[in-house]
């Protein structure tokens, strides 16, 4: 039987395989630890996980202060592509890296679906 990490790794591989414009993905805990990852080898996972957790924290604060609501998604656009952060359950975040040519609508749909799968994998192991 596959472990939780293996299941999540499979889900992330599925996400990356869904579009050639998705170049990497990772699930990061609110504590800043990588839970599962299919990030490109040149990416510093430790740095990404710390920044993602910090970003998740900032996103939560902005959502609650300005919109009195929970955070769902943060996305960053740069010249070379996008970084999408989507909350997974209460204590994790999915980080997705894409190229600048990615069709964001499709990416968001794929991210939403994979987040549900990841949420179930986390809940099943809790």
């Amino acid at each position: 039987m596959a472990s939780r990490t293996e299941k999540m790794q499979d889900i992330l591989r599925g996400l990356r395989g869904a579009s050639p414009d998705i170049i990497g993905a990772a699930v990061v805990s609110i504590d800043g630890f990588i839970v599962a990852s299919v990030l490109p080898s040149e990416v510093d996972e430790e740095l990404v996980s710390g920044m993602a957790a910090a970003m998740l924290g900032v996103g939560e604060r902005i959502s609650s202060e300005l919109m009195a609501s929970t955070m769902e998604q943060v996305y960053v656009r740069s010249e070379k592509g996008y970084v999408v952060l989507n909350a997974v359950g209460a204590d994790s975040v999915l980080v997705v890296l894409t190229t600048k040519d990615a069709k964001l609508g499709l990416v968001f749909i794929e991210v939403k679906r994979r987040c549900q799968e990841l949420g179930k994998a986390i809940a099943a192991s809790a």
Partner: peptide, 8 residues
């Protein structure tokens, strides 16, 4: 500013 993210 960071809420729970400060732990990281």
């Amino acid at each position: 500013i960071m809420g729970r993210g400060q732990r990281a």
